[in-house]
Simulated assay, not measured.
Amino acid sequence: MGGSVAVLLVGAVLATGCEPVEATGGTGASPVPRVTTAPTTPTAPVAPSSPSPSRSSDDKPAAPAPTRTSPAAPAPSPSARVLMKVGSEGARVRELQARLRQTKHFARNPTGYYGTLTAQAVEAFQRGLGIEATGRTDTVTWQRLLAATRTPTASELDPPTELPVAAPDPRCLKGRVLCVSKESRTLAWMIDGRVVSVMDVRFGSEYTPTREGVFSVYWKSRHHVSTLYGSAMPYAMFFSGGQAVHYSADFAARGYGGASHGCVNVRDEKKISALYEQVKNGDKVVIYH
């Protein structure tokens, strides 16, 4: 009997899985009026003479009329080449985000991925400088940012999560728990109230929401592939039907521009690899908002 139940349970899971989904931007000059004066009668004959220069009322030579010129547009700097743009990633992007955070233009923790939020922060910084707001980080923007900020510390460059970790739900304070906050989009691996590790997570869309409540890990699958969607679900730890905590390459690449079909996606493969080795079947999973 027990063997039959296990086969049915595993079979149900194999028919489920999570797949990343897309989340649901000619005029002419006015004529100059002619000024005329009434003719005057000379009091005495005037001999012809060479024309004399006009005089002002105080008998000083009249100043020539000023000539208006439009300011020349600044020529583009030949050194303004693009260093980073949407799609860039790595240590320099992480430093860019940390420095933009210092200037109050970037409200998240650095991720090392140049997405739309980073581009918007760069645009805002460029507008503040009065330079062309492209959202791309060129050499001029980068040098101005370096001058306006200090060198970020190691903790500023590599914080554990994009958003600050939420205060744990009271149900997470006892035992071995995967404590998942939808509000801060973080997962904290806790043992008897102590946080062992934390990582960024994302969830299902409004049509395929991630379930909330208290669950437990009932099956682990290191190289799992969804039979519904054909997508890879490495380091899968199933907690409710076909919903699992697992690594998502799509999340790592696109960030929060997408969503899962209900699973809890983790984008840091190194962190979830270590977590997978520590979590055991029967460990608690608490998902709350």
Rank of each mutant, 00 (worst) to 15 (best):
S226V: 04
K271W: 04
P39D: 15
S155Q: 07
G242I: 02
T69P: 05
Y207E: 11
C263S: 06
T116K: 03
T16M: 06
A119Y: 02
S54P: 10
S248Y: 02
N265C: 07
L9Y: 10
Q278T: 10
P42G: 11
S231F: 00
V165A: 10
P168D: 01
S30K: 15
P152H: 04
P42W: 09
E132A: 14
A65F: 11
R171Q: 15
R55Q: 15
K270F: 07
L173H: 05
K60T: 13
T141V: 09
K174N: 10
V225W: 01
I287E: 02
S181I: 02
P45C: 07
G255C: 04
S231N: 10
K280R: 11
V286P: 01
G258K: 05
G28V: 10
T149F: 10
G204M: 03
A166G: 05
L129F: 11
P33L: 12
G241D: 02
F251G: 00
G135M: 00
R136I: 08
A15L: 14
P61K: 13
K85I: 02
S155G: 08
P45Q: 13
T153N: 09
S77G: 02
D200G: 08
P164Q: 05
M233I: 04
V214R: 14
K271G: 01
R81Q: 12
V21N: 03
P66I: 00
V5P: 05
I272F: 02
P168Q: 05
S205C: 08
G2A: 11
T43P: 15
P170V: 08
A232R: 03
M237D: 00
V266H: 00
N281Q: 13
T153Y: 13
R222I: 08
V21Y: 09
L275Y: 05
F238S: 03
L117E: 08
E162S: 03
S248L: 06
Q243W: 01
R254I: 03
R136S: 06
R55F: 10
A15N: 09
T186S: 06
V35F: 03
A29P: 11
K271D: 05
A12T: 08
S221V: 05
P159F: 09
V264H: 01
A62E: 15
A65L: 14
L173N: 05
Q120E: 13
V32H: 15
P209S: 12
E269S: 02
Q278E: 13
P51K: 04
G128R: 11
S231Y: 11
V35A: 15
R136E: 11
A249D: 03
V198Y: 00
L157I: 04
V264G: 03
T210Y: 04
A236H: 07
Q278L: 12
P33Q: 15
R127W: 05
A252Y: 01
Y235S: 00
G213K: 06
R101H: 12
G242H: 04
G90H: 07
S70Y: 02
K284S: 05
V217E: 05
T227S: 14
Y114L: 01
G112P: 00
